[in-house]
Design a protein around this nucleic acid. Sequence first.
DNA 1: ACAAATATTTAGATTTGTCTAAATTTATAT
DNA 2: ATATAAATTTAGACAAATCTAAATATTTGT
Lengths: 220, 220
Amino acid sequence: MTLSEEDYIKAIYHLGSGKEQPISTNAIAVQMETKPSSVTDMLKKLSGKNMVKYKKYKGVSLTEHGELTALSIIRKHRLWEVFLVDKLGFAWDEVHEVAEQLEHIKSDKLIDKLDTYLGNPRVDPHGDPIPSKEGEFKKSVKKLISELPLGSEGVCVGVNDSSAAFLKFLDKNGISLGDTLKILEKEDFDGSVSIEVNNKEMRISDQIASNLFLEVLEKN
Amino acid sequence: MTLSEEDYIKAIYHLGSGKEQPISTNAIAVQMETKPSSVTDMLKKLSGKNMVKYKKYKGVSLTEHGELTALSIIRKHRLWEVFLVDKLGFAWDEVHEVAEQLEHIKSDKLIDKLDTYLGNPRVDPHGDPIPSKEGEFKKSVKKLISELPLGSEGVCVGVNDSSAAFLKFLDKNGISLGDTLKILEKEDFDGSVSIEVNNKEMRISDQIASNLFLEVLEKN
DNA sequence: ACAAATATTTAGATTTGTCTAAATTTATAT
DNA sequence: ATATAAATTTAGACAAATCTAAATATTTGT
């Protein structure tokens, strides 16, 4: 697989994830920031390598083989992201570009050892799931803390209310986007929630809980 | 710089290191496992980018700019090798191929952070020096322990006497190629040497010291 | 249903890095 | 010194990945 082929496979995967109908040439061209004619050329090539099912004018979808390839690339990308954030101290929102390069490094042994070294993480710094070596993974969903059941664990990925006051509150309490957060207790009385972030336990009000999004793994 | 350009620059650097006369087209072709005509094409291209001084039929040498580029690539290669061995647990003799890929990753911030994370190592797992960000580095030489002065510190890189008995001795005493070794004391009387390896102190006979090569940094 | 709009593919050109074969330059040996 | 050998460059071709422009297929609106 060339670098370019891998990028196309990944793009098709991201466009087609979950959906049933095939992906259009145009959609791929937009995603890859290239021309539809270039996409057509590549689709023929990938079809010849059994990575995609391609019917002229009818769009394209990944074969079993293509999907496993995509998942292997995504696995590498996300493991490298964990490395960059957890080990090298990058911020969660500045790792994508470098991981786009690192995901193309070819060495199964490297990825196995990296996975072990990182403690076999299940999610990347954005809360997205990391596929296993065999290509299995749980989907993730973005939900408000207030919508999640007790015991949920996820990554802070966004806020509903981006007012300066709210962001300041988060900052003051040492909560940053990218942090892992666990729901310990919920108070029916006032909707307040006990959480654990960065090894600290704290209680947040219903108002906070209704404004902070967590990316959590679906429970199968 | 493309991947291919970087590989040529590195090859020219390795062939020309220290020598005064320019590098021949043929030598580069052998090193790169390619045809002389391909080399000629690339030399024209690199010359246009001010990376090499090239005179038809007269060979080539790196410009200042080309040399700094080479050193930056070597820096990246060797830092990644340290990472693979120290952090991921690769053996010192199985990292080269992966490092050849990793050295092309483009991100100054990544290399800065990696360097810090690894504790600013001065040598790679083969005992070769790691150039600084500015392209400065001490040369290294391969010498027998018996030839080195007190206080020398280096990496075990080879043996003079590869007899089964000698290799077995090293193994039994927990000395492997790639280990860092320090010379603590030398006994004039019998030529025996006190050394530190893997946080253990031990005494080796003159016979051992005359058969084990260390790669050490030159003292300027 | 069919003309117009949109999407897709084909044809032909371009760039990068490579190759072989032929031409040219430099080195060597008597 | 000059013929021969060796090294190097040039010329022309090729594969990968891209592009533009033209041709063709599909979809949509009335």
